[in-house]
């Protein structure tokens, strides 16, 4: 790889992303883990900028750092005495490792030029161009058009709204279960949900 400014910036943001992610797993303090998650997601936003996808970078920061990690922190605060966890139960890590490896191989298989050589059908959106510098200046407008174009992404777009609605109603149902103490019960059950809305 040629050493250009872009390459250096890429390496820096990759390091931020991976380092942050690693700390999320390694740190014992849940609050710190959430902050490291923010750092990691911020690194991803930087990578999006490098790919000349500034809108995705903005959306990444606004949604993931500004909303979902905040939601995670709120969920952390709902759990009683999480700082007191002294013993860490790490019994499931081989499974997690296997799944992560599988996902990695799968992504490489389907998303990289390697895919063509291996004979798999690479799946890519219409926006893909060879060189990031060739991204047209009005790609944002194009994105807006394609979101409401019945022949392109209209259906997923409306489905996203439906999903958001379902997430909201589900959350209300979880919190509003009758005859129990919402503070103690509802929150951990709802804690697993943030992914849905993203």
């Amino acid at each position: 790889m040629e050493i250009t400014v872009e390459a250096i910036v890429f390496l820096v943001f990759s390091a931020i992303t991976l380092g942050g992610a690693l700390q999320v797993v390694l740190t014992r303090n849940l609050f710190h883990a959430a902050l490291y998650l923010m750092l990691s997601l911020f690194g991803v936003a930087g990578l999006f900028v490098l790919l000349t996808a500034p809108f995705l970078a903005g959306a990444q920061v606004v949604i993931y750092i500004g909303a979902i990690t905040i939601l995670i922190i709120f969920a952390i605060m709902l759990t009683p005495q999480v700082t007191r966890v002294l013993k860490v139960h790490h019994t499931q890590w081989p499974v997690a490792l296997a799944l992560a490896a599988l996902l990695f191989v799968g992504l490489v298989w389907t998303q990289t030029p390697l895919a063509d050589e291996l004979g798999a059908d690479g799946w890519s959106a219409d926006f893909t161009v060879e060189d990031p510098a060739d991204v047209p200046a009005d790609s944002l407008t194009d994105l807006g058009k394609s979101l409401v174009d019945p022949e392109r992404y209209m259906l997923p777009f409306e489905a996203a709204s439906l999903l958001l609605m379902a997430a909201l109603i589900g959350a209300v149902l979880l919190v509003n279960r009758p005859d129990d103490n919402p503070d103690a019960e509802a929150a951990p059950a709802a804690g697993a949900r943030p992914d849905q809305s993203g």
Binding site: V62, G66, I70
Partner: peptide
Amino acid sequence: LSIGVLYLLAAGSLGMVATLM
């Protein structure tokens, strides 16, 4: 920036993190 308004929001969410910290 071509995403100026979105950038404003993104920078704003960093302030939120500072408050939590």
